[in-house]
Computed example of a mutant assay.
Amino acid sequence: MGNVAVTDLKPGQKIASPVHTMLGGRLMPKGKVLIPRDLDVLRAFMIEEVDIEGGGVPDLPVAKDAKNTTSSAKTPTPAPKASPEPIKKAAVDSFQLEYDRMLNLVKSSFQSALAASIPVYDLRSQLETLLGMMKHYKILTFVPKNMNEYDYMYHNAILSSLTSYSLAQWHGLPQKDWVQVALAGLLHDIGNAKVDPDILYHPSYLNNEELEEVRMHTTYGYQMLRNIPALNEGVRLAALQHHEKIDGSGYPLRLTGDKIHVYAKIVAVADIFHAMTLKKRYRKAQSPYLVLEEIQSEAFGKLDPAIVQTFIGKVTELHNGIRVRLNTDEIGEIVFTDRTHPTRPMVSVKGKIINLVQNHNLYIVEIIN
């Protein structure tokens, strides 16, 4: 091993020790094989030298000369490995299939909630099937197929459920709470079943009387869930409290932070994120990164700051390599995310590294799957 000046690095060399920025953030992991774009990233961060395995340029394979070959034995050609892409696509399709089943069940449950009991056991069973496939659910990039704008409320319920499940784990809640938090996310808006549909789906601003009716969905939801023994009190309180704010400015009871149940605090973050990133009848879907910045600003007095910090840190953690569209309509690829500015990553556009922290007029408007 040995340190090699960045100016002398070549694609194909392997990093022997992690590379860190001047502020201590990990730029590249140990064992990473350098590609041409990585050399641009290292230069952009003013890294002078890197610890490289072997300390030099790797030996390149030498082509064999048939005339100088001393052995006539032929090396058997290994059978080509099966491409993982069809397997991966099948798994993703299976997740989408189970998601669609969940969607149909949630729709029928919400629509019949006033006339019949809520089928909690059926909902939980299908939810647990989805939760068993969570590795195929990426919060920032997952978009439901065939999104019907009239089904927004049901999509929001499912996505809030899945996101709340992940957030409960990340926030350190005991394992016994994880599925209950997921149920809290799934049922947090069940009270909308009692709200006048003409008001609920109104495409423009509501008057004060209509707004008060919509806000009643929190109280309605708690009343609908309070006598269901399969749900714990946290699930019921999430339906009641997910619009409360830690500074006491929320509704329906104007509770302050210490009186809001942790389930409600988690569901509130998930609900806001998906409410803003899903397409509605009267509004386009917003950029996940812009929404994260808005949620970050809400952490000051409105949302639980520790939960917000955990959420933003985790969902942006593994997205290096993701292709994105900037507000200039340029397509780029995320090459580094500074943990102190997780919503403003460095993006490679046509070979140029753009640091969004330093370019406030630029931002990501779309993640391209």
Rank of each mutant, 00 (worst) to 15 (best):
D8R: 10
P11Y: 04
P18I: 00
V19A: 01
L23F: 00
G24I: 04
G24Y: 00
R26M: 04
K32H: 13
V33Y: 00
I35Y: 12
D38G: 04
I47D: 03
G56S: 12
P58I: 04
V62E: 14
T70D: 08
T70N: 08
K74W: 01
T75K: 09
A82D: 11
M102I: 03
L105K: 03
L123A: 07
L123G: 01
S125P: 04
Q126G: 06
E128N: 07
L130Y: 03
M153I: 15
I158N: 00
L159E: 01
S161L: 12
L162M: 14
W170Y: 14
H171F: 15
G172Y: 09
K176S: 13
Q180L: 11
A184I: 11
L186Y: 03
L186F: 06
D189A: 11
K194T: 02
D196H: 07
L206Y: 02
V214K: 13
R215W: 09
T218E: 15
E233V: 15
H243N: 12
L255Y: 06
I260F: 10
V262I: 15
F273C: 08
H274L: 11
K279A: 03
R283K: 15
L290R: 15
K302G: 07
P305D: 07
A306S: 00
T310V: 14
L318W: 07
R325T: 12
G332N: 04
F336G: 05
R339E: 07
R344V: 04
P345I: 05
S348F: 05
I353F: 05
I354N: 01
L356R: 02
L356M: 06
Q358S: 08
I367Q: 12
